[in-house]
């Protein structure tokens, strides 16, 4: 009787373990649209933070959900994915926002020269600050 009970407990634990492992293996990506922004900032500020001290900015902004606002200087479509370039005071640097599939479809409502608010995940700084998986807020 006790032997049966022990095997039953082990079996149940095994099933739970396998289930947890499976869940972890298939852990979903962060849903930008449903998550709260970690940092709210202007395009100008984040660009100047990266250009003055990239290492510090990396530790502050990388992999965070950033809500950024600025003026649209360019709207492009590359491989069916929308990219919004935000103007900054810096002549060369800007903020490049790579849109999610969902937001790419809404890109036609936007116009160059108009202000926009987006949120996305910051992956770093090359010539520009780069945000991916961006959602248009307004």
């Amino acid at each position: 009787m006790t032997k049966k009970r022990i095997t039953l407990v082990i079996l149940i634990l095994g099933i739970i373990g396998a289930f947890v492992a499976y869940k972890m293996y298939n852990k979903p990506h962060v849903d930008v649209a449903d998550s709260k922004s970690d940092i709210v900032i202007s395009a100008d500020k984040i660009q100047s933070d990266f250009s003055t001290n990239e290492n510090l900015a990396n530790s502050n902004y990388l992999e965070k959900i950033i809500e950024v606002s600025g003026e649209i200087s360019e709207l492009t479509l590359e491989n069916k994915k929308g990219i919004i370039t935000l103007k900054t005071n810096d002549d060369f640097g800007s903020v490049l926002c790579h849109l999610s599939d969902n937001s790419t479809q809404k890109m036609n409502t936007l116009k160059v020269g108009k202000p926009v608010r987006l949120k996305g995940i910051c992956t770093g700084y090359l010539m520009d600050v780069i945000l991916v998986k961006c959602e248009i807020i307004n």
């Binding site: 979903p28 990388l62 770093g124 991916v132």
Partner: peptide, 16 residues
């Protein structure tokens, strides 16, 4: 060429 390592997007979050 300059590549940001954190810009690599995987299908599974755990792999990334």
């Amino acid at each position: 060429i300059s590549i940001l390592m954190k810009s690599f997007m995987f299908k599974k979050a755990l792999m990334q």
